[in-house]
């Protein structure tokens, strides 16, 4: 069984941490743009939490499907929406940071997922036909 999810999560986390580093660097270089970089940092942190929660949920659903068990009820999307809303409330209402920068931070991890997912699909399509049978070229 080929399990790509931990590898994908590690890549997404690495990309998000890189953007967090860029945000910290921008804040250090341009302190007068504190509202923009601060909002971006909080949004990106929230998006990282969202992605980790989604990966945990996906693995749990797959475990239940493979074990033939019924899924227990949960809050599902509401918990992830609450994480996003919490990041927005902390950033915009409590700290007074820029709302647009917060939204840009929240879409950091989904954009990384999109880019990595599309690149992995393209890589799979470009593979040799004998790959599916496990033969060595």
């Amino acid at each position: 069984m080929k399990d790509d999810l931990p590898v994908l999560m590690r890549k997404i986390s690495r990309i998000t941490f890189f953007f967090l580093f860029l945000g910290c660097l921008g804040w250090a270089i341009y302190p007068e743009w504190k509202e923009v970089f601060g909002g971006y940092l909080i949004g990106a942190l929230g998006s990282l939490l969202l992605t980790w929660q989604l990966a945990w949920k996906t693995v749990r659903v797959a475990d239940m499907a493979a074990g033939g068990r019924r899924s227990r009820g949960g809050f599902g999307f509401m918990s992830r929406a609450a994480i996003g809303l919490l990041a927005a409330v902390i950033s915009v209402r409590t700290l007074g940071y820029d709302p647009a920068a917060t939204v840009a931070g929240i879409i950091t991890a989904p954009m990384a997922t999109l880019v990595l997912g599309l690149s992995s699909i393209r890589r799979k399509r470009g593979g040799h036909p004998s790959d599916e049978r496990g033969e060595k070229q």
């Binding site: 399990d3 790509d4 992605t51 996906t58 997912g117």
Partner: peptide, 20 residues
């Protein structure tokens, strides 16, 4: 299971970005 859950994760991650 491994490849299916990875594909589901990518799909759900993209679908849920918009409502958030």
């Amino acid at each position: 299971r491994g490849s299916l859950q990875t594909t589901a994760f990518i799909g759900v991650g993209l679908v849920e970005a918009l409502p958030i």
